[in-house]
Amino acid sequence: MIELTTTRHNPLIDPSLHVWEWQIPVYLFLGGLVAGLMIIAGIRLIVLRPSRREALVCCTIGPLLGLAALSLGMFALFLDLAHKLHVWRLYTTFEPTSPMSWGSWILLLVYPALLANALAHLPEAIPALARRFPVLVAISDFILARLRLVLAIGFANVALGVALGIYTGILLGALGARPLWNSALLGPLFLFSGLSAAAALLHGILVLSAPDEERPAFADFLLSSLARVSGARPLDPNAGPVLAGADNSFLTIELALLGLFLLGHLTSTAVHRQAAGLLLTGPYAAPFWVFVVGLGILIPLLLQTLELTHRIRHTLAPAVLVLFGGIALRVILVAAGQESHWFHALN
């Protein structure tokens, strides 16, 4: 037993680091979600090919939601900055050793990629908008007429999505001072968590847009209002099972990565074991097991498996749970990671 006392009492630092509150986990979650949306949208764009003009909405609604989510996420990040007026300094330099510098430049590229992806099939997805702004049709035609451009947009979305997703994990993983975060597995973990969230989100939208009899009643009002405003066609219900299937794959991989992440810590130094203990048995164990593992991964996995095997109807539940689990994962990892410490392990 070691008795360690310090006279330091700096705000945000003592008694244990708490520099990041809700803003950073929200940003990391939305970043991951956008990454997932980009990858799914990118793949769809590549797979669809321009010859087929009927749009799959995850190519359009996904990226549009992605643009919104990304803006929200960056706003959350901005709110976290202590020296807000200097934020532009991010773009006067590139620091190759800083994940945050990489991230800020990646984010700058994500916007046009997402936008281009959304514009490719916008007229079909939201005809009302296209009627009002005919230029959107022209843009869409321009893109779809050029196969290489479509492929470029698709691949750019996939590549940037992967980079963005991994970056959100590496941002924490690179901080060796916090043993809980100190794993490169956080990159793929956050990437697949983002993918599962994105698939769940799109799946949720498709569930909402499914034929009346299959639709959860509570969504009626919401959906009809949405349809009236956008004048949209019913979304492609065939994509639902596909996305749910994909989501299950992502969730399975995420679960495996989470296991490996913890295993890595448990087989590492005492400092890392103690850090993992924060999640497994310590103060964060209850929320971790219940919200992240149980409600966020296992139950949606089960529900979606039952949906896919047609034992139950497709509902919003798995989508909501996966999204919630994605937020919980970041909130808990950010909080517990800040509490994990080299010095505390002495006690």
Partner: peptide, 19 residues
Amino acid sequence: LCIGCKACLAACPYDARFI
């Protein structure tokens, strides 16, 4: 140049920095 992102606070194993 500092934007107050606090990455350096989190990166320091000695908790030597503050905002």
